[in-house]
Amino acid sequence: MTSALVVDAALVLLVLGLALWITAARAAYGAAVGFVAYGLLLTLIWVRLAAVDVAMTEAALGSGLTGLLLLGAAARLAPYEAAEHQRRPGLGLRVLVGVLCAAIAAGLAAVVLLLPDPAPSQALAVAAHLPATGLGNPVTGVLMAYRAVDTLLESVVLVPALIGVWSLSTEMGWGGRPGFLTPWRSGSALPLLARVLPPFGILVGIHLVWAGADDPGGKFQGAAVLAAMWILVMVAGLREPPRVSDRLMRFLLVVGPLCFIGIGAAGIRLAGAFLAYPEAYAKPLIIAIEVGLTISVTAVLGLLLAGPPVPEPQYQRQSRRRS
């Protein structure tokens, strides 16, 4: 018992110290690397709290994918960073930012400290009604049945996010291939990894989606692993990212949300409410939605990292420069 307490206390201190270090770090690149380590420590804390689903999401999306996006942004911003440090904001602005941040921290602390004891919870009601969904994992049950509108919106919101990234493309680049993941030099160890790892990664990704019905896992975690394999193949130069004008790829981007909305709308007729499932078919319908969403989330996550499209000659020049 006490040894577990020591480990937990050490984890908490590490997370707090790392968070302070990230906030104080001057260089964006160092802060992004710190953010990845921070995500991994948070993952351990979620595991200690027995929230394995949240831990997997944090590791795959919070730390891994967001970390990669931040590292890419830091690398792109590096040339302007020195100039940015010269222009120090005025005292008034700095005080204002400090006060607002302190207010947010105090507000969060107040909310946590003022929670009623025991905290209000629907957990018992969910556990009582879970068999109706045919699922064994209560997290998946809540996400797919009781809070399905939230899940629908958070899977749809990925598509506008990708449109936002694409709209950063120049006019000449539109219709071309995404330009951030130009292939690494040939002859390095990366192409070997990109050939050996994907079979295992794809297996793990599909397993996470499938096991998500009854055990920790699910479409977002599985899709993050699948997207990582795709990105690995693109960075190694074994496959080019698809053109943003590619019709099949655009269809894959929206097939998940379309499937979700379609089944949800059918629920109005069959079960009496939007996003309600007829009881006899709840599990097959939920699995159909999970599979469709996995495909779309994988495609969106991979293309988010692949960045806005660039003109074709520029893409080839970048590829050559690296080989």
Partner: peptide, 9 residues
């Protein structure tokens, strides 16, 4: 596998 590859890179 990943450690060896990252080390090489």
């Amino acid at each position: 596998l990943s450690g060896a590859t990252v080390g090489q890179l």
